[in-house]
Each structure stands twice: as C-alpha cells, then as structure tokens.
C-alpha cells in the first residue's frame, strides 16, 4: 500500500509528531499543527530546506536578513538546542513553549537567565550586563555617557547581587525577578494562545489522515 501515496507529504529533518510535542509543552495538538504552518513559512523564507537558519530568523524578527543583534543571536542559540546552526521544528516548538502564557513562570525565569548568561558560565557577570546595556543602546540609537552607563549597571548589579560576590547566580536572579516581575514580560507571547486562528492547519490535518 506504500506506493499508493504519490502525494505523501515531505517532512523536514527534525520534524516531530504533534502529539509528542503537545505532550511535552503547553500547546495542544492543533496548536502544534498551527505552529508547523508558521514554521514552514519561516524555514523556507530564504533557503528552501525546511530548517530555520539564522538569516531567516533575523528576517522574521527585523524584516532584514542581515541585521545582527546580540539578543536575537542569544535567542537563536538557545532555540538551537543541538547547536547545529539551525532551529529544527521540535526545537522551535519546545522553545516557544516557554513563551506560552500558560508555561510555568519558573521556566520563563530560567530561560531569561540563560539568555543573559552570555558566556554560559552559570552566572550573569557585571561585564555581561554592561555588554548587553551597550548593545541595547547601540540598537536603539540611544546615547548615554559612560558615567551614566556605569551608574545604571552598578546600581542594578548591587541590587541583584545580594551575596556581593560580583556575579548573579540563579537564586539571586529568581529573587530579583520576583521583585521586578516586568523583567520577564517579554517571556510571554499572548499570540501563542491564538496561534490556531493565525495559522490554520487544514493541510496538516489532511496529511495526518492520509498517513493513517
């Protein structure tokens, strides 16, 4: 019977069954199917291989494939769990799961920590914080004097580094976020609750039937 399916759907490398991904994330099966529609669009935007390359990620975020950005690089690297230079479908869904409104807050806090731990030492260090502030200023064309930058970084660091050992660990980070919950506001994407409306997955649904 295998030869009957001349229109068998082509699955990209890294494709995982929606039921498996739904079991591991806050998404329902139909939401994962809708995410696959979005994923196909993003992953074929420049290189038609069904994998999200960094240029495609930058294009989706900034409408510009060449716009480098420290924070977008960090997000890409965290999504690219296998570290093979592309975001596969399973990686895309699991990582976006953290941004779901129903995802545990602890996961959002942990993700933000890893994002800001630029050199992956297990701590956010003062130099990293300063580097991120400078990157933000550069990105937004804001100009601040060196003194003001130092003051902002120093004050924040003193507030967060309660143990005073010159680095922010995960415990200190959790405590700091609990005092400033707005810090993880961008770890929640309300869009993810309406993803099935934005990307209906009729095609995927019929493909599932076909393969049964």
């Amino acid at each position: 019977m295998g030869c009957a399916s001349s229109k068998r759907s082509k699955r990209t490398p890294g494709y995982e069954e929606p039921t498996v991904l739904a079991a591991e994330t806050p998404f329902t099966v139909s939401e994962v199917e809708a995410l696959y529609e979005l994923y196909k669009k993003l992953s074929n935007a420049i290189i038609a291989d069904g994998l999200i390359h960094k240029e495609e990620f930058q294009l989706a975020l900034f409408r510009n494939r060449n716009r480098r950005n420290l924070f977008a690089d960090r997000i890409f690297d965290l999504f690219d769990v296998k570290r093979n230079g592309v975001i596969e479908f399973g990686e895309f869904v699991r990582s976006l799961g953290v941004f779901h409104p129903n995802a545990p807050v602890a996961d959002k806090i942990a993700f933000a920590f890893r994002l800001y731990d630029l050199r992956q030492t297990g701590f956010i260090e003062r130099e990293e914080l300063k580097e991120m502030v400078l990157a933000l200023l550069h990105e937004s064309d804001l100009v601040l004097s060196e003194d003001v930058v130092e003051t902002i970084v120093d004050k924040t660091f003193t507030d967060a580094d309660t143990k005073g050992d010159g680095k922010i660990d995960t415990e200190e980070w959790k405590e700091f976020v609990s005092k400033h919950p707005s810090l993880i506001k961008n770890m929640t994407l309300p869009y993810l609750k309406d993803i099935t409306l934005a990307f209906p997955s009729f095609v995927v649904a019929s493909e599932v039937e076909e393969s049964d």
């Binding site: 950005n69 977008a72 997000i75 990105e139 993880i184």
Partner: peptide, 26 residues
C-alpha cells in the same frame, strides 16, 4: 530619556531582538 536609576535588565528587555511577537506577523 533613560534615568540613571533605570534597572539595566528592564532596559535590555526592551530589545527588539527579544520581541518574538514579530515572528507571528504575516
């Protein structure tokens, strides 16, 4: 205007690179 009392993490969390909502724009 960025006051010197601004929380540095608050500032960096406004980065466009961290705003994934643009992934969903058609």
């Amino acid at each position: 205007v960025v006051p010197a009392t601004m929380n540095a993490f608050e500032l960096i969390s406004t980065s466009q690179g961290l705003n994934l909502s643009s992934l969903f724009e058609k």
